[in-house]
Design a protein around this nucleic acid. Structure first.
Length: 194
DNA sequence: TGCCCGATTAACT
DNA sequence: GTTAATCGGGCAA
């Protein structure tokens, strides 16, 4: 039987929680799959929405850990985060890619496409596939419609620089499952200095 | 009040 | 590789 992840799991450093999310199963109203890519955002990090202090948009990030933070990206997409650390730290893990396992037919319907590899391979794509919008901002992650389960076996986690940001772009706070076909982008191979 | 730009994506050339 | 779509947040004025 898979072990449920509860809110208490998120009351730690975002840099510990983020790699721990790789291989966990995320379900939203019974639809979802295996988390294969995330990024960590810390309140001292210029790339984080919470960096400049609380606002109406990021209020959930300043609340207790174990809740969803959903924001609109580029005026078009929704992106899902898990709030971490003790209350007030305003740190979160961005969920960037899922390997679809449950409710694939409904994901295909919402995304209007057949290619399973592209259903949830990106933060905007996975919110569309799971039907997550701003109405799901600030919900507890251990109660319906959310459900989270720990990996059933050890996961091979790799790290790299985050994607799509300009501030603090060098921080290696992107985590993924090594070799997954469902990453939003590949992790560059480690290469030696020429 | 106005302006710039982004934790993206899909459709181009 | 490049770019349009699309709009609210955050800051300057």
């Amino acid at each position: 039987m898979p072990r449920r992840i509860t809110r208490a799991f998120f009351g730690r450093s975002v840099h510990e929680v983020a790699p721990d999310m790789i291989g966990a199963t995320l379900l939203f109203a019974g639809v979802g799959g295996r988390i294969v890519e995330v990024e960590a955002y810390h309140h001292t990090d210029p790339a984080a929405h919470s960096f400049r202090g609380p606002t109406a948009r990021n209020a959930v990030m300043f609340g207790p850990p174990g809740y969803s933070y959903v924001y609109r990206s580029y005026g078009i997409h929704w992106c899902l985060n898990f709030v971490c650390e003790p209350q007030g730290s305003a740190s979160a893990v961005l969920i960037r890619a899922i390997e679809p396992t449950e409710g694939i037919a409904s994901m295909r319907g919402r995304r209007g496409m057949a290619d399973e590899r592209l259903l949830c391979s990106g933060p905007g794509r996975l919110c569309e596939a799971l039907g997550i919008t701003d109405t799901h901002n600030g919900l507890a992650l251990d109660a319906p419609p959310f459900a989270l389960f720990a990996p059933s076996s050890p996961v091979d986690v790799i790290a790299g620089v985050r994607i799509g940001i300009t501030k603090a772009a060098e921080k290696p706070w992107r985590y993924g499952e090594k070799g997954s076909r469902f990453l939003s982008k590949p992790f560059p191979a480690i290469r030696r200095r020429p």
